[in-house]
Nucleic acid binder design. Structure first.
Lengths: 198, 198
DNA sequence: GTCTATACCGTGATAGAC
DNA sequence: GTCTATCACGGTATAGAC
């Protein structure tokens, strides 16, 4: 944790496997769901010896948390790239475009964060939460900031509506197994962004 | 199946337990999720002897299917009641009101159909689907019919947007553990319905 | 026709070999 | 420091008792 991952020797190998495992966890947990995914599934996907996983993650929950961080960092990368656009309205349209470009995955497995959120919510049994709500809140706040810069009234409400629309269209697209749902809804959202404050 | 449920004698008792079990299944599967729920959980909730469940349902999937039908019939009851309103616009506003009135449950466990849909989707492994998509499609079609009666352009698109907004706000409300999200979004949807075609 | 004891399997986790 | 043989538990489903 404290030292660089690419030092050399066995440490590098270990860090490599850990990264492989987190990446595989993010992918497989999304595709199969948390409860249906076994440690062995993740190990296989990461091409790591099966029982060996517990050396890197002491528990299954730790793997889930790692996957969550993975999604959070993907989100940060995306918003970071969008932040380089000058116009906040264009940034939001870019966000919608990014969502729509993932429509095939969404139709097959749903929104990565959304499906994780509902599953983890039912996992929290009094114990401490692996709250995916944190990541969603992060997204909401970024979107809200864009609306605020545009100067619209009730930026928080607008953010809820936009992110909610994303979650909704992902779920519908998944339930109906039809990526076109994402495309149609995405087009509508873009239109609404264009005609904002007219 | 062929004879009335309230005949008399042991048959009545059996039918009663079957109904108790489906009702309990619908409730518990929604609260805990399909994968985390054991047959024993449902038996306990239905106050039916544990191992005994298999007499009424040969497999867990049959219980899930029963729960699905339960939700479908709830939906039919609701739309049936709304159909008695004269104005299709009022019918849609009534639908939104019904959603918002369930906000506390949604904040705790998500939308019953929505969460089931994402879980069942990941359960379908090549085998035949316990597709919750059917129920959602049913809702979509009813909503679409209302928009068509109102005479708006692209009623299908409007239906997708409305039902999608519902699913989205349920998920966000659940992830953030905040029923107010439902109230705010519901108000927005009602406002949009009022100013439709102006 | 209704219910219960039990088989059997897959899972997460660990003690200890390399 | 890295990995594997093994355990104990809890789940679904069934054979057969009432």
């Amino acid at each position: 944790m404290t030292d660089s991952k690419e030092s050399r020797g066995p440490r590098a190998k270990a860090a490599g496997k850990r990264r492989q495992l987190t990446a595989a966890a993010a992918r497989v947990l999304h595709e199969q769901g948390v409860e249906r995914t076994t440690i062995a599934d993740i190990a296989r996907a990461a091409e790591v010896p099966a029982g060996n996983v517990y050396y890197y993650f002491k528990t299954k929950d730790e793997l889930v948390e790692a996957a969550l961080s993975e999604h959070a960092s993907h989100l940060e990368t995306l918003t970071g790239r969008l932040d380089q656009l000058a116009d906040p309205r264009e940034r939001l349209k870019g966000l919608v475009d990014a969502w729509v470009s993932q429509r095939d995955t969404a139709a097959r497995y749903g929104c990565p964060m959304g499906t994780l959120a509902s599953e983890l919510d039912k996992r929290a049994e009094g114990g401490l939460d692996l709250t995916a709500g944190r990541v969603i809140r992060q997204l909401l706040e970024w979107v809200e900031a864009q609306y605020r810069q545009i100067g619209v009234a009730d930026p928080e409400g607008h953010a809820l509506a936009l992110v909610g629309a994303y979650q909704g269209m992902s779920l519908l697209s998944n339930a109906l197994r039809d990526p076109e749902v994402m495309a149609r809804e995405g087009a509508r959202l873009t239109r609404e962004l264009d005609s904002l404050g007219c």
